[in-house]
Design a protein around this nucleic acid. Structure first.
Lengths: 135, 135
DNA sequence: CATTACCCTAGTAATTCAATAGGCTTTATG
DNA sequence: CATAAAGCCTATTGAATTACTAGGGTAATG
């Protein structure tokens, strides 16, 4: 299951993408429209900014805006930034690999091959879909 | 990512399945072979027993054994018992449905349709693979 | 009847989640 | 230049979850 942070982040980006306006979108507007705590949303949008998905403008008339076209932002990339690894086990993660400390020998692990299949099948859909697919 | 409980549970079942012996398998043997804390493993195996996947025999010569053939136990069912919902959001879970409290209207949610697609694509693989596929 | 091996209840340290609080800095505009 | 608007930054916190640990109870076998 996704954390609320990820869910809120996706909803917020979808909200901004839907507007397609020239002027930046206010945190407060997103918070109200999507029923998200304003302060919590601040943290999330800041993270999306620091990860290069959003730009911001301070002061009056400021707000957040997309740095790329929605169809150029994959859901996989967003989930990696907001939630972390997509794989079910750290030892089969492409972007966040870590050795399982209980595994005596990774080569003979009974789960690994299967988990790689699951990962690939998940990536198949998450890397094809983009922000533009989130209405 | 799967919790350690789920990972340990799958490894333990795979261990029992691999043995295919008539005599039950000891908790201690599994714990040692798979590098799992013995006490933690007790809890996990008990849960798998209460969920109908394993049977047990007490006393000398006791241990745990499978109640079904490995090829009749889907990974999806195991993950549901050990980990919980497979869907990424509660509102698209088939077995653990819950309304999102931030959603003003589920019908117009920007994420729902997409999350249903992800769920279906995940189930596609998790319901086809069985314990027999976990070496 | 003693040993073996599963069963059951409790507790707990560490981490993560989901915020909340409060002030600071930057910018546009009158 | 003053003021209001709007994002930025730091710190804290309550609740829940995770990953165990401790210690004994109970049933079956030989």
């Amino acid at each position: 299951m996704l954390s609320k942070k990820t869910k809120y982040g996706l909803k917020a980006l979808s909200n901004i993408a839907r507007k397609q306006s020239d002027s930046p979108v206010l945190i407060s507007d997103i918070a109200e429209e999507e029923n998200i705590s304003r302060k919590f949303l601040e943290i999330i949008l800041l993270q999306l900014k620091n990860s290069g998905f959003l730009g911001s403008k301070k002061g009056k008339g400021g707000g957040y805006y997309l740095l790329k076209k929605p169809e150029d932002i994959t859901v996989a990339d967003l989930i990696r930034v907001l939630e972390g690894p997509i794989a079910l086990l750290p030892c089969v993660s492409l972007n966040f690999y870590e050795k399982c400390d209980d595994c005596k020998d990774e080569k003979t692990c009974s789960l690994k091959a299967f988990m790689i299949d699951v990962r690939d099948s998940t990536l198949e859909i998450l890397e094809k879909r983009t922000l533009a697919d989130l209405t």
